[in-house]
Amino acid sequence: MKLALLVVPFIFAQAFAVEHCYSEVVGACSPVGGGVENCNAKYGAINEIHKELSNYANLLINKNWQFLLLHTHFSNYEANRPGLTKLYKKYADKLWEDSIKVAKYITKRGGVTDFSYKKVAPAETNIENYELTEIASLGKGLDLWKYVANEVFHVHAEVGRRRETVHDAETLSFLENEFVHDHSEIVRKLSGYTNDLKSLLSNPNDSNLALWFFDNYVAKAAE
């Protein structure tokens, strides 16, 4: 008898754990009625990480504005670098599209995007003054993309832990397929550009022509 008392609630708990939505729907259809709060797309660790993902969506939106402004600076008639303009616009557009992807993914998993949840970003990821030289903008761009890439690794690490309550295979896969590979390509490209320009600018007699030529090359490569 004592054993049965222990076992019965256990069986009930098990049944509810897997059929929460079902029992709510049955209840809602009964004469008493009721809500279906547990009929949702939440499973895995989404409750643990939808804040992290919101933060990431907001971060991508913020970086998109920064690259849009870098594009603006190099598009003015004094700076006038069509190659860098095109490159930074491409990055801004990608960041914007990616932020929409994250927002859609959050809802795919039953979460909510919180547009005001922003963790404090390190000071070096801000841009106080957009009137940067060509090489300084490449250096800044590289730092920004590394931050964007490292922040994905951070979320990835959060959901990659082995404890079941926080592990989320679907989010791992989403982050890898949609972001991680793209980021490594972009970081590599910007590092290459920065180092190229560093060698090209090392001879003061070449530098003005080198900048013009390099920008034309970037325009071609960004097509």
């Binding site: 603006t72 598009s75 003015n76 106080e128």
Partner: peptide
Amino acid sequence: LIHYLLMRGQLTTEVGQLIRDPAPLAE
């Protein structure tokens, strides 16, 4: 709008002021 201003020779300084962390009016 930004491209228009650039075409007219504007936005040579202080472009950082153009975009100030726009937020949705409701969620």
